[in-house]
Write a protein that binds this DNA or RNA. Sequence first.
DNA 1: TTATCTGCAAAAAATTTGCACTTCT
DNA 2: AGAAGTGCAAATTTTTTGCAGATAA
Lengths: 199, 199
Amino acid sequence: MRFVLACLISMQQGPDLLSDSSPVRSRAVSTASPNGQDSLTPIKVSLTPQQRFEEYLQSRGLRQTNQRKFLIDRVFSHHEHFDADELIERLPRRGQENYVSSATVYRTLREFVDAGLLNSFQLDGRTVYEHGYGYPQHDHLYCTSCRELFEFQSDDLLELRNEVAAQRGFRVNSHRMIIQGVCQKCSKKRRKKRKQDLV
Amino acid sequence: MRFVLACLISMQQGPDLLSDSSPVRSRAVSTASPNGQDSLTPIKVSLTPQQRFEEYLQSRGLRQTNQRKFLIDRVFSHHEHFDADELIERLPRRGQENYVSSATVYRTLREFVDAGLLNSFQLDGRTVYEHGYGYPQHDHLYCTSCRELFEFQSDDLLELRNEVAAQRGFRVNSHRMIIQGVCQKCSKKRRKKRKQDLV
DNA sequence: TTATCTGCAAAAAATTTGCACTTCT
DNA sequence: AGAAGTGCAAATTTTTTGCAGATAA
């Protein structure tokens, strides 16, 4: 583990998993809370991640094991960007109850991605995971100073993407956009520091 | 090396390095040639990559070595996406003339990026490099079938990016957008194959 | 002359894999 | 019972680093 990865986005309330039977994604809206943190509204889905994974496993003749059940609970217990190493560090150690070997963690994370529960992308050489099920499509701003990932959602971007692809007969599966720079907080810190340095 | 990385984009003619003394980027235009290949027009720059790197080295009190000179010639001899491993494979082997150790290749590639000559990004776990100097800002379509990278250029995307960033006081340094999917060629191949399978 | 570079080999970091044993179904 | 899954350790893959000898300025 070389980097701290945090995420400013938190769910305003738990995802409303049972109130709507439609698995269709509703329009996500990005909102800003007083402390400057942003969050996207969770999507209403008919199944919990657990249930959906169960379906996925059954459809492929795979098994429900304690490790898989334990990991899905952990991974979906809070909304946050993470990498394999960070997850492993928060898991029970060898010898403790519910210990899961790293090999299994890696294997299971890949299954979660295959099942559409998690999204993954590369950042600074690591594979970063985030919730994909029950959470709207979005893109990221990455602060190279504090290494936090911020989320944003733009329909215009999607439209643009589709236009570009259509223009050359490219069939789109997904996209990934990351804007690199320095977040407001870090910019302010730096200005402050420069000011102090002058005194 | 796990992946073949190719690039359909070729320069229509060598970069016109000497005809304009302005280092300012001119507007890039994406064009389509009859065979379906796209290319972006090179930017007019006042210095060759070699000259620019020389400046960079001097400004930092670094040295011009045979290895650096050799590598910059190789890297800028054709416009193509590549990773460290692919470059190393095309270089003279140990014992031959102009051999450069992999450690030096890695170190030098990083210098090229620092000097603004190359851009780098992560794709499928590797670091991919491409020309940054003398070539316009652009983004990529990545075909997961043939693993080729196609380039596209969109001012709307830049505008959108700047708006998103401005909205939350984020100072942008750069961005990276990769559209994943299947290119036209591969789609056609698949359709053909499916047809044949039915016969 | 001397700080910078290079090559080499070893280390690191992040995954993946082979295999014997365990566990779902 | 028997396929699938797990843990372990070893292997991979990609990149970095320490260090002694080589070299540019």
